[in-house]
Amino acid sequence: MKPQVKIKTLSIDGRDIGAREDETILEVARENGIAIPTLCWLEGLSTVGACRLCMVEIEGSSRLLPACTTHVEEGMRIATDSERLRRYRRQIVELIFSERNHVCSVCVSNGHCELQSLAQALGIVRVHVPYRYPRLDVDASHPRFVVDHNRCILCTRCVRVCDEVEGAHTWDVSGRGVDARVITDLAQPWGASESCTGCGKCVHVCPTGALFEKGKSVAEMSKRRQFLPYLTLMREERR
């Protein structure tokens, strides 16, 4: 017999809402049609709270909290769309644009990119911090896929899907700070990886054009990730 789930009542942006106690603020908000921007979060993967776009205000707490990792509590009063939050979100997206080389017009994912649509939704028309223009590699050694570090935002979705869903753990992060990179195996060329099964899940969960299929030209790389919630659901059923 499953233990009984308790219901908590709370309010989000002034709306009174009931939620299961094991839900996060993000899940409850989405169920109720309240949009909170996210980049590192993806349904079916573990949460890491790394991009900081989903930060929300909670009445009575001076700290902002990430909606994706914070569980609901009785009586919580949450604001998801204040002027301050909107400003922070724009700044965070600008920081991401400035970090590497995100040139949409020549990107395989132009028009299908989560970073791009987020910037549009937040009304970003220019980046106020200086671009860093690092010189980064493109690894095309894999027979079917390419990783272009210029477009990577270090959301680690590839790392998590490969480990948690495919079970291969080909991807990882090496280095610190702005020098951090996603790597395959022990920082070997992807094509030389012995653990990679070539399943392509990493490519399809990648929010930008950092991971793509060979042969795709500008704006041709759209991602399919409907498989993910389905796979995780099936795995949980089997447990």
């Binding site: 890491v48 709270g49 790394a50 991009c51 900081r52 965070i92 920081l95 991401i96 400035s98 970090e99 935002i153 270090l154 992060v173 280095g175 610190r176 700070g177 702005v178 020098d179 951090a180």
Partner: peptide
């Protein structure tokens, strides 16, 4: 010394 995990600190 930033670990590079979250955007605001890393960048």
């Amino acid at each position: 010394e930033s670990c590079g995990k979250c955007v605001p600190c890393r960048v």
